[in-house]
Design a protein around this nucleic acid. Sequence first.
DNA 1: TCAAATGTAACAGCTTGTGCTACATTCGAA
DNA 2: TTCGAATGTAGCACAAGCTGTTACATTTGA
Lengths: 158, 158
Amino acid sequence: MSANSRMTTAVHVLTWMAFDRRGTDKEIATSQRIATSVNTNPVVIRRCLGELRDAGLVESIRGRSGGWVLTRDAGEITLLDVYRATGAEPIFGMHAASPDAECYVGHGIASTLTEVYDEATRAMCRVLESTTIRDVLRGSLADFPELREAQGLEPAPA
Amino acid sequence: MSANSRMTTAVHVLTWMAFDRRGTDKEIATSQRIATSVNTNPVVIRRCLGELRDAGLVESIRGRSGGWVLTRDAGEITLLDVYRATGAEPIFGMHAASPDAECYVGHGIASTLTEVYDEATRAMCRVLESTTIRDVLRGSLADFPELREAQGLEPAPA
DNA sequence: TCAAATGTAACAGCTTGTGCTACATTCGAA
DNA sequence: TTCGAATGTAGCACAAGCTGTTACATTTGA
């Protein structure tokens, strides 16, 4: 059970919603139905969707026949949006205890490392930004060309 | 207390060793002395150094007047070497439970996400590879030009 | 022979993620 | 107007990982 699978769950949820949106039966997406695909508990899905709603990616509808809807097209949601929405921890953590300030190395290392860590994180974020939920859906349906076409998705680039 | 501060501790340890190496007193680096700068327990430092030794970055000398030495110049140790040595968890975790394979989305999403995650991780690693322990030492000593020069380090680039 | 160092096991305390139950709230449909 | 189905949220148990610490075996130079 790895550290940050919340991101993966959130991407799965959004991809499922994008897939379901164009399905034949026009049922609304509920936490119960999504939980079946992700293979987890509906409360876990609701917690996840709550974060996505706070970030403006989905909206919830309360009451009977309520559920969840995407607020924009799947091609307009990047994995960077999802990464930020799930409030990911910084990839690199600083010291647990402050280094000895009287040590020359301990005095300046934190700010130096922060610069490098920030740059590395930005490089990672640029990759996430280049992929959308629509891309993930296309990749996930690679084994089912007829479904992929029904969703209006072109084949994946070579 | 953030997730992965082991990396930060390891970089601090190596930077301190690079600094100490050219110091006036020719004492060998011991886990006790390093722990003072990092402000933690010597056992934590020994655990860290053990990982760095397994990766070939340092060597240990047992017995009285033993300690630790770098196996190569600080300019030849990149932060990517340290990242790998500390056995970092994958940045992105997969689902805790396997998704429903009968769901079209659940069937293919894992391999699709793995591709994107791998690419993002590679982008991050490229940045880490471009920085060495020598660079970190130079940055850490930015406030002490006379020490920086004594270490034979040019000023940081603008 | 002894002191100082590494090497390692074991444990407590803390934090985080996951999965679950329980229950209040909301609101469309009968 | 009532009822059922959904969201919203609190709270708990369990597992895992990191940190810090004590304790002790091992090694080896002085």
